[in-house]
Design a protein around this nucleic acid. Structure first.
Lengths: 233, 233
DNA sequence: AGCTTAATCAAACGCTTGTTTTAGTCAACT
DNA sequence: AGTTGACTAAAACAAGCGTTTGATTAAGCT
């Protein structure tokens, strides 16, 4: 009552928890918008409406804050990925369908439940920003997940050589990351004929498209020579 | 002669040009390795072996330096892209082959002639880092180039709806950027069965693969429903 | 020769960064 | 009611940032 902040706008929450959560939300947003280096702690505390020391009190350091922001979303995402993968494995026939594997890998991170487009953009930034710390952080949280999906894909595509499978999974990651990182990129290019900031629409195209790409013929080891009479299809 | 730097280790170059070029080389390397924010001007001048003020003298500001680094590579790349595109247009039949268009778009930037893997990594970082300045810089240098390739692709794929073409070109960009950004990423995942840090090997797979992806059937507007009996091929 | 211009240097500028300190407030428990 | 401990507030910290300064040197020109 001595100051001015005891009116009613903080009545919603018992103070402590709210502060922590507000920092996480603001940091997630500003990290994703301006990059981890580009968003200063002062910008974050100003956006969250908390004190400068709160970040170091709750998270120890900026690095600790980033890890908390990242872990809060990525753990449920990884969990749901596996849940969806095993769910469609037990479903009808034995092997999960290609669509289902790809959807199980992409959907949890791109739809709105776990941070949505904001956290997706942060993930994409971190994938490219890639300081040593960031690289270690992502490697730590992503390690097991990818191999399980690679195995599921291999089971669904028994005729595809491992070399092709690995390249195409690598390209899947690139396509996913780029789509998450660049909302509104092709809109300018194509007069709004497609809208990648709408993750639902992105997924609706991306999943069946990637399924087709995985099903395409293997690429021969020797590079193709372009002969004059060769047709495009 | 009054100081110590007049011995012989700078005898290779008439001073001025060498300083500028060394700054450009060091900046390109350090920007690509640690990001634009992550590489300080002091790190760059130390790596280049020049004075702190040299950067602002030659390039005005850090932003000016980045633009100079970028322009030095991207202009010849854009030029060679168009040269390759028109070359295969005039070649045999009328429309360039799909492989040729994709190769003309990817090859100049990924092979070694224009900065090679180092500059490729920088481009990939800038594509994701995307502060307002970086975004404006890339937009300025990439504007016209992409539309010409989109038109060539449309001519080579007359049956593909524009919507599919735009999405797939967007995915091409993502695949390219991710491959340039993450050398050595899948190696750890797949026990060295593929090596994306070798841009030649990457291109040898990427070009025919992307050609197949562009030729795949259009994706229907309405999202596919996964019916129980649906097979994966 | 003398004057002018371009390039380089050491040093410092003001500012922002992440982090820490010191003091204080509030809620809860015995 | 009083004490404790979780938490916040405001200010300051050292370090690093991009940038600027003013002096010094080398080269070009008439």
């Amino acid at each position: 009552m001595t100051e001015a902040a005891q009116t009613a706008d903080v009545a919603l929450d018992p103070r402590g928890i709210s502060t922590r959560a507000r920092i996480l939300d603001s940091a997630e947003y500003l990290f994703s918008e301006h990059g981890v280096n580009g968003a200063s702690l002062r910008t974050i505390v100003a956006h969250a409406g908390v004190n400068t020391a709160a970040i170091n009190y709750h998270f120890g350091s900026k690095k600790g804050l980033l890890e908390a922001v990242f872990a809060r979303r990525i753990l449920p995402i990884a969990e749901e990925r596996l849940k969806q993968l095993t769910a469609c494995r037990d479903g009808d026939g034995r092997p999960p369908l290609l669509h289902q594997i790809i959807s199980a890998f992409l959907e949890p991170g791109m739809r709105g439940r776990h941070g949505g487009a904001t956290f997706a953009r942060l993930r994409a930034r971190m994938a490219a920003d890639a300081s040593d710390d960031t690289r270690a952080l992502m490697a730590h949280y992503f390690d097991g997940s990818s191999t399980q999906f690679l195995e599921a894909l291999a089971a669904a595509l028994p005729d595809l050589p491992a070399r092709d499978l690995h390249w195409r999974f690598h390209y899947l990651l690139g396509t996913m990351v780029y789509t998450m990182a660049n909302p509104g990129r092709i809109q300018a290019l194509t007069n709004n004929s497609c809208n990648p900031s709408d993750m639902d629409a992105s997924l609706a195209y991306l999943v069946p498209y990637l399924a087709q790409c995985f099903q395409a013929d293997p690429i021969p080891e020797a590079p193709l020579r372009f002969e004059p009479g060769h047709k495009t299809e």
